[in-house]
């Protein structure tokens, strides 16, 4: 897939340096992406800053957004760090959001609030376990890596596993008891705690992972340097004006920095462990 993507650039607008007519931004379940009025306000904000129409393209799994990038139907995307590394030949790092002032997040291992016995991953042997997305770091890669570290086979450790295709639904699945445990993005968990505290309160965090680089904003390699810089400037500038700050607050992030790809080395290491890099 990566090889195919490498051959793709050049067919898009990269050849021309003229500003794009419409900037298409892919949004993924890497954050609480189904708050529709917030998405509309953010899009309006970006349009007014960029003086260019902006189109938000929401998909409910990483795979679908990755496919859209392959098909060059997106210019930018807010991706999880795992797909970002997976598509590293197709996309460039545009900006990294700041979570609690730092560009990092973690994977939380959660169980239902009624389960008072489980103290660690080891206690969940034979349980029904929910993963977020096969292309999620905190919701799939990280917990499987943890199991492997502990010397277990992720394929047989649990009685049954399933994907909920979003972190938010994963929290619901654990809260309602459909899964005994699950691995979830700490940022989504904390964001949802503000929006839907009743669901989050029905779960309990059992383990917190090490820090990983925060899900980045990436630009397709076909995006012109002008558009790349315009979008980067718009995102970085959000913390500089009141409207932007209000939106950042609603998105539960503190702003954006340019960042560095080396922040994702930890994730890359885990991917290599599973032979996926």
């Amino acid at each position: 897939m990566a090889a195919l993507a490498v051959g793709m650039p050049g067919t898009g607008r990269a050849l021309t340096h003229a500003p794009a007519q419409v900037l298409r931004v892919g949004l993924t379940p890497a954050f609480v992406h189904d708050q529709h009025s917030l998405m509309a306000d953010w899009r309006n904000y970006l349009e007014s800053r960029l003086q260019t129409p902006v189109e938000f393209v929401q998909r409910n799994s990483y795979r679908e957004t990755m496919d859209l990038l392959h098909q060059e139907r997106l210019d930018f995307a807010w991706l999880c760090d795992y797909p970002f590394l997976y598509l590293k030949d197709l996309v460039r790092l545009l900006a990294i959001p700041l979570n609690h002032g730092r560009p990092y997040y973690r994977s939380y291992l959660i169980v239902g609030s009624g389960d008072s016995k489980s103290k660690s991953m080891a206690d969940l042997k034979g349980a029904v376990f929910a993963y977020a997305d096969p292309y999620s770091n905190t919701g799939y890669l990280a917990p499987r890596y943890r199991l492997r570290e502990m010397g277990h086979d992720p394929a047989s450790f649990f009685r049954k596993t399933f994907f909920t295709w979003s972190h938010r639904k994963l929290i619901e699945a654990v809260a309602k008891g459909y899964a005994d445990g699950g691995a979830v993005d700490s940022f989504v968990f904390e964001s949802l705690e503000k929006v839907k505290p009743d669901i989050v309160r029905r779960t309990r965090i059992v383990e917190r992972s090490v820090e990983y680089g925060f899900p980045p904003f990436a630009a397709h390699r076909s995006v012109s340097a002008t558009d790349f810089l315009r979008m980067q400037k718009a995102l970085l500038g959000m913390s500089g004006d009141p409207a932007g700050r209000t939106l950042l607050e609603r998105l539960n992030i503190d702003g954006f920095i340019v960042g560095d790809r080396r922040m994702y080395d930890g994730v890359e290491m885990m991917m290599r462990a599973f032979g996926e890099h």
């Binding site: 929910a130 399933f162 639904k169 309602k176 459909y178």
Partner: peptide, 12 residues
């Protein structure tokens, strides 16, 4: 297709 979450959503 063993899409358990989708099945859960359907029965719920």
């Amino acid at each position: 297709h063993d899409d358990l979450w989708r099945a859960i959503e359907l029965v719920e």
